[in-house]
Computed example of a mutant assay.
Amino acid sequence: MNTATFLEILTVAEKLKCNTRHSWTSSGRHESVAEHSWRIALMALLMRDEFPEIDMDKVIRMCLIHDLGEAFTGDIPTFEKREEDSEKEDKIFFQWIATFPTHYREEFTELLKEMNELKTNEAKLYKALDNLEAVIQHNEADISTWIPLEYDLQFTYGADKVEFSSYLRELKKEIDQRTTEKIAKKNED
């Protein structure tokens, strides 16, 4: 890839550092889209031993690119996002990667198609991590940042995505326990 193209791609991707999500960090600021993507990639890396049959390199690549379209659209919280929003994000993403060198254009196109279809174990794992990281992040944020619907959403979000794996079901159970404790502590105060 020539250096100008490389830097142009990084310039667009840098917007993910600036675009914030609905989630808050433990230090009391909004989480960036880039931080979310980085952490789900780290989650995948740390789960290699739990999923030896899965191409974890592919999962990490999925995690790193999954929100690149949000460099153009910004983040829309899951409870507000409509199918039209996802379609618009994908359309912009595909238009952008059409400008990439052939190898990367083909790779990113295939990855996004696989991620959207959610048929392979790699895609299922990426999507589960995407959902679980959001729930983990909410547990790490001050509960005063939660809106009312998140008290239930903490337990339901991602629950369907972990069903294919006993390890992920156990992880979701542990996350739910921490959510329960966080809510109970708030109610004590």
Rank of each mutant, 00 (worst) to 15 (best):
Lys172Leu: 14
Leu118Ile: 09
Ser86Trp: 05
Glu174Arg: 11
His30Glu: 02
Arg82Glu: 03
His22Asp: 11
Trp146His: 00
Asn131Thr: 09
Ser27Phe: 14
Thr99Phe: 02
Glu114Leu: 07
Cys18Met: 09
Leu129His: 09
Tyr157Gln: 14
Asn139Ser: 10
Arg21Gly: 04
Ser144Phe: 04
Met56Lys: 01
Thr73Tyr: 02
Ser32Asn: 00
Thr11Ile: 01
Thr73Asp: 11
Glu133Ser: 10
Ala98Cys: 11
Glu14Ser: 04
Lys15Ile: 07
Asp142Gln: 05
Ser166Pro: 07
Leu171Lys: 13
Asn19Pro: 01
Ser86Ala: 15
Asp49Trp: 08
Met43Lys: 10
Phe155Ser: 01
Met56Ile: 06
Ile175Cys: 04
Trp24Lys: 05
Asp142Gly: 07
Ile40Leu: 12
Glu80Trp: 01
Thr25Asn: 09
Leu132Ile: 07
Leu64Ser: 06
Asp85Pro: 00
Lys15His: 07
Phe93Ile: 04
Leu111Lys: 00
Gln95Ser: 14
Glu181Val: 07
Ile143Pro: 00
Asp189Glu: 14
Lys124Leu: 14
Glu89Ala: 05
Ala141Asp: 00
Gly158Ser: 11
Cys18Asn: 08
Ser23Gly: 08
Thr73Gln: 03
Thr73Leu: 10
Thr25Leu: 12
Ala159Trp: 15
Lys161Leu: 12
Trp24Glu: 00
Glu50Gly: 09
Leu118Asn: 09
Ile136Asn: 02
Ser27His: 12
Asp57Val: 07
Asn139Asp: 11
Glu87Ser: 12
Lys113Ile: 12
Leu153Lys: 09
Leu46Phe: 15
Glu80Asp: 10
Leu111Val: 06
Leu149Pro: 00
His22Met: 13
His30Pro: 00
Pro77Arg: 13
Lys113Met: 11
His36Cys: 03
Asn139Lys: 01
Leu7Met: 03
Arg105Met: 05
Ser165Pro: 15
Glu50Cys: 10
Glu14Leu: 08
Asn187Ile: 15
Cys63Ile: 12
Lys119Ile: 15
Cys63Ala: 06
Asn121Trp: 08
Ser26Phe: 13
Ala71Ser: 07
Gln95Ile: 12
Asp176His: 11
Asn116Trp: 09
Phe72Glu: 05
Ala128Arg: 08
Leu149Gly: 02
Asp67Lys: 00
Phe100Asn: 01
Asp49Leu: 14
Arg82Pro: 00
Gln154Met: 12
Pro77Leu: 15
Tyr157Leu: 12
Leu68Ile: 06
Glu140Val: 03
Leu46Val: 07
Asn139Phe: 15
Tyr126Ser: 01
Leu129Ala: 07
Thr11Lys: 08
Asp67Val: 02
Ala4Phe: 02
Phe93Ser: 01
Gln154Ile: 09
Lys15Cys: 05
Asp57Arg: 07
Ile76Pro: 00
Met43His: 11
Ile147Arg: 04
Leu132His: 08
Ala141Leu: 04
Pro148Ala: 02
Lys88Arg: 11
Leu129Ser: 04
Arg29Ile: 12
Arg105Glu: 06
Thr179Phe: 05
Arg178Leu: 07
Thr11Cys: 00
Ser23Met: 13
Asp57Cys: 10
Glu70Thr: 03
His66Gly: 05
Thr120Val: 14
Ile136Val: 12
Trp96Pro: 02
Lys185Asn: 14
Gln95Arg: 15
Val59Ser: 06
Asp90Pro: 01
Ala141Ile: 08
Val33Ile: 14
His138Gln: 09
Asp55Met: 03
Phe79Ile: 06
Trp38Leu: 14
Cys18Gly: 13
Ala184Met: 08
Leu111Ala: 04
